[in-house]
């Protein structure tokens, strides 16, 4: 019996050999595939299936007619967008605001993580960490409320401070020139602590023997941080940077909607708020889809570019 089987296997074509291998493989590894399934299903349902709907960017979409039956209109929505000065301005603002958050916001969690790492007293370390994590868990609505109150012209903390120093009150939230600073600053304050966790974890993974030998060689704390910790967590930093660059066009729009005013549109109106006003409030889903698609294509190009550069420069990459 056994001989017969092996005989058959030998005579099988390469294709069915592959099939047998597959069956065998699944029989052995099915547990892993079951573990993989939820993620796969999630990806298909929530990321790949909605891509079918992207076609409404090229259609005159009617909710009742449905995606398939709405008529094609080509690139008209894209023409409409690019003829609109406000859309061009929104792109510009998005790039500036994200660029600023990247430039000023990206290093802060790394610095924080390095600083936490230097704290010796464990109790103090825990307390300090909890305090900087906390803002992350507060909802955007409340953060916006805090910002509005703090920057209020009559009773806001910031203006009271300015008054005490002999300056006049400034109505910050209606001044286009102040919007970016306030928004980026708020973002850093809210997220820096939480984002430092990943770097802290990475620091914890650095081989302790490196530090031990450095101590033997008489290195200072500063030298150890500079020569051991930073180079060791560099791959993590680069991966995080690539991910951040991919999200560069995604500015958290809830926060902007709560903080902006027509008076500050000049600097505060970003692509997502523009989509919100034009597309969702005015029920132009097709136009909103076109703007969203444009957004996604740019983000895609940016990720590829960042990844390629990183691969060339440091041999660290996402794929």
């Amino acid at each position: 019996m056994e001989n017969e089987q092996s005989y058959q296997v030998i005579n099988e074509s390469p294709r069915s050999k592959k099939l047998t291998w597959l069956i065998h493989h699944f029989q052995r590894e099915w547990r892993l595939y079951i573990m993989l399934a939820p993620t796969l299903i999630w990806f298909i349902l929530f990321l790949y299936k909605p891509m079918y709907g992207l076609q409404i960017a090229f259609k005159d979409y009617s909710v009742f007619k449905g995606i398939t039956d709405s008529p094609w209109i080509g690139l008209e929505h894209f023409y409409t967008l690019f003829e609109n000065d406000q859309f061009i301005r929104a792109i510009k603002n998005t790039v500036i605001i994200s660029g600023a958050s990247l430039l000023f916001g990206f290093p802060v969690p790394i610095i924080l993580a390095l600083m936490f790492n230097e704290i010796i007293n464990p109790k103090f370390k825990k307390t300090a960490q909890t305090i900087v994590y906390l803002p992350h868990f507060i909802s955007a609505v409340i953060i916006a409320g805090i910002v509005i109150t703090a920057f209020a012209p009559s009773t806001g903390v910031v203006n009271l401070l300015l008054n005490a120093l002999g300056y006049d009150s400034v109505y910050f939230l209606t001044k286009p020139e102040w919007f970016r600073t306030i928004f980026v600053g708020t973002g850093i304050w809210q997220e820096a602590g939480f984002n430092s966790i990943v770097f802290l974890a990475s620091i914890a993974g650095v081989n302790p023997s490196l530090y031990e030998s450095a101590v033997v060689d008489g290195a200072s704390r500063w030298q150890m941080m500079w020569k051991i910790t930073l180079p060791c967590i560099m791959p993590t930093i680069l991966i995080m940077l690539i991910i951040r660059i991919g999200n560069i066009l995604e500015v958290g729009f809830e926060m902007i909607i709560m903080l902006y005013q027509p008076a500050t549109y000049a600097t505060s109106d970003v692509i997502s708020t523009f989509i919100y006003r034009q597309g969702l409030q005015a029920a132009q889903y097709d136009l909103a889809a076109a703007a969203g698609l444009f957004n996604a294509v740019i983000a895609f190009v940016l990720v590829i570019a960042a990844n390629t550069i990183s691969k060339k420069v440091s041999r660290t990459s996402l794929w």
Binding site: P262, A282, L287
Partner: peptide, 23 residues
């Protein structure tokens, strides 16, 4: 209406606030 109005309205409001605030 869809193509022009929201953009016009936003521009009107932007100027309106800037005028009142004295900017």
């Amino acid at each position: 209406y869809d193509k022009h109005w929201i953009t016009i309205r936003d521009y009107m409001l932007e100027m309106q606030q800037a005028w009142i605030l004295g900017a």
